[in-house]
Every structure is written in C-alpha cells, then in structure tokens.
Design a protein around this nucleic acid. Structure first.
Length: 291
DNA sequence: CACTTGACCTGTCCGC
DNA sequence: TGCGGACAGGTCAAGT
C-alpha cells in the first residue's frame, strides 16, 4: 500500500506517540507466522520490557528503535497498517479500506503490542504480504533490501545528475518500471510514478533510453514535487484512511491521473485512460504524455 | 547482467 | 444470487 509519503506521514505521527512507551506484551496471530517471524525467546528478551527510542524510515520501511538495542522493522507492503490505540480512540495509518469504526483487534490484525500504560499498537494486514521483524538495530541496514535500495529521492544531496545516472542502468526497460525499481530510487510506488510521469509529460511505457535528457530532468523535479506534496497532504487516501494523529490524508483529491480514468486531464481536458505498464495499472493523458 | 513474469494472500468488484 | 476472473498504493524468485 503505502509509498514513501504515506510511510513518512506514519513515521511523523508515531514519533509523537511512541517514544518513551515501554512494551508490556506482544501477541501475534498464530496462523500468520510470516507477519511476525521472530523467535519467542527474542521477543521476551529484547521486545517485552524495552521502550521505544525513536521511529525512523528508509524507503517504504518503518523502523521502531528500541532501548534494548533491537528494532522493529516494518514493511506494510500493499495492505498493511499500523493503528495506535491510546485508550478510547484509535489513531491509524495505512490501508484506506480499514475504517476506524471497527473495534481492534479484528480479523486482519496480525500483531498486537500492548504498552505498560495500557495503550496498544496494532499491525493489521489484509493480504499478509507485510511483516514486522525484530532484529538488532546495528544489523538493520545489512538486510538485503537495504543493501540494494537506491537513494532517498528527497535527500538534499540527491541531484538531477544522480537521478539520470541511476536510470541509465535500466536503459532498455520502461521509464515506469525504472521508477518502481527500488534499487534505482527508494520509495516510489504506483501512485507517485504515474503522477510524476504525467507532470513531466512522459508516457510510462517509453524506454528509458528514449527519454531525452531534458525530460529526465523534468521528471526529477516532478517526482520530488509530487512526493513533497504527498507528504504535505498527509499521504494519499480516499475515504477512511487517517494518519497516526487521526487526520485524513488528502493527496488523492489532488491526484491528476491516478484512478481518474474516464475523467478529464487537468491540463488539457483529454480523457484519462488506464492501461497496463510494467505489470501495473497505469493512468495517463493520451494527449499530454507523448514521449 | 537486464528484463519479464508469476507468486505470495485476501477481498471486492464486475460481467455472465 | 452465484461464479469466475481481474485486479489491488509491493517485493521476490525464477524464468528467458
């Protein structure tokens, strides 16, 4: 589900809610071992009794750092969400198909962490692609994923030249596939790929090698702009999504093409079409995106 | 190597 | 109403 802006929104919210809280108990759903593949002995030794030090993010991965020298590394994949219950009201973040009205845990709850003050953090994940892994903080960046993942696109030192250089490795594939490749750049998913390509007037199926340098530069600027807007709007959502402070993300109402097939292009009025590129549903303006 | 496709899961929607 | 298939904001492994 979430892409960089959604995970970043979640990080910001959890940073206000979790640090200082001490874990009292952890319950994981027995029939979903892949959601929480950790040894019971590690959970007892390094999670129960530990308190949260800070919450960080790399790419689409959230990292809850603990006082025990261990961290909870969390990937929400397509449908994961984290919902904090401070007592009385649920504050959540993640997949929009889950509203806040239901009592938790529910049938999609894979892990429940109870803190000593009675508050709870629920990890819900309908499709069970996501996971919560407990591991030594010092080893987190040694995970295969982190060793291969590309730079943060919003980092101050990530330049247009870096962007162009990294894209060259994928010269024969589509520009959309290259954007979605986490080893090229971190954090871009289906929504922000489509939105940035529309903004840069590049068709997603264009081979990377066929995109002129000027258009690549435009895409660099557009990508950073849509990711920044996504964060400012609290992530993308449709109806029931909220961030960790209970506010709805509003980015979807600002989307230009994503899930807007059949509607007019905000730039030229041409009807937006949906197709399939890089194995993913893809939204384009057939008039604007001609490269 | 670069690149593509299917697998992993559950739920929902859409056409017959 | 029931059923089958396509599809969903993401990665991996395995194939060409």
């Amino acid at each position: 589900m979430p892409e960089l802006p959604e995970v970043e929104t979640l990080r910001t919210g959890l940073t206000r809610l979790l640090p200082g809280r001490a874990v009292a108990a952890v319950v994981s759903q027995a029939d979903a071992p892949k959601s929480f593949p950790n040894a019971e002995s590690d959970v007892r030794a390094f999670l129960v009794g530990a308190s949260v030090t800070e919450v960080t993010r790399r790419a689409k991965v959230l990292i809850i750092v603990l006082s025990s020298g261990y961290s909870l590394v969390i990937h929400l994949k397509m449908t994961g969400q984290l919902v904090f219950d401070g007592g009385g009201k649920h504050f959540g973040a993640g997949h929009p198909s889950h509203s806040l009205v239901g009592e938790l845990p529910d049938r999609s709850t894979r892990v429940t962490i109870t803190f000593k003050d009675g508050s709870k953090l629920f990890f819900n994940d309908q499709r069970k692609f996501g996971w919560v892994r407990l591991m030594p903080t010092a080893e987190v960046m040694n995970l295969d994923f982190f060793r291969k993942v590309g730079p943060e696109p919003l980092a101050d030192n990530f330049s247009a030249a870096d962007f162009a250089g990294r894209l060259k490795r994928r010269a024969r594939t589509s520009i959309k596939a290259a954007l979605l490749d986490q080893t090229v750049i971190a954090g871009v998913g289906n929504i922000y790929a489509d939105e940035s390509l529309w903004a840069a007037k590049i068709h997603p199926a264009t081979k990377v090698a066929d995109v002129p340098p000027a258009a690549i530069k435009k895409l660099y600027t557009a990508l950073r702009a849509v990711l920044t807007l996504g964060i400012e709007k609290g992530g993308s959502s449709n109806h029931t999504y909220v961030d960790a402070e209970g506010k709805k993300g509003s980015y979807m109402s600002f989307a230009s093409v994503f899930r807007r097939e059949g509607k007019p292009c905000p730039r030229c009025g041409t009807t937006i079409v949906k197709s399939r590129v890089a194995g993913r549903g893809t939204h384009t303006c057939p008039r604007c995106q001609i490269i």
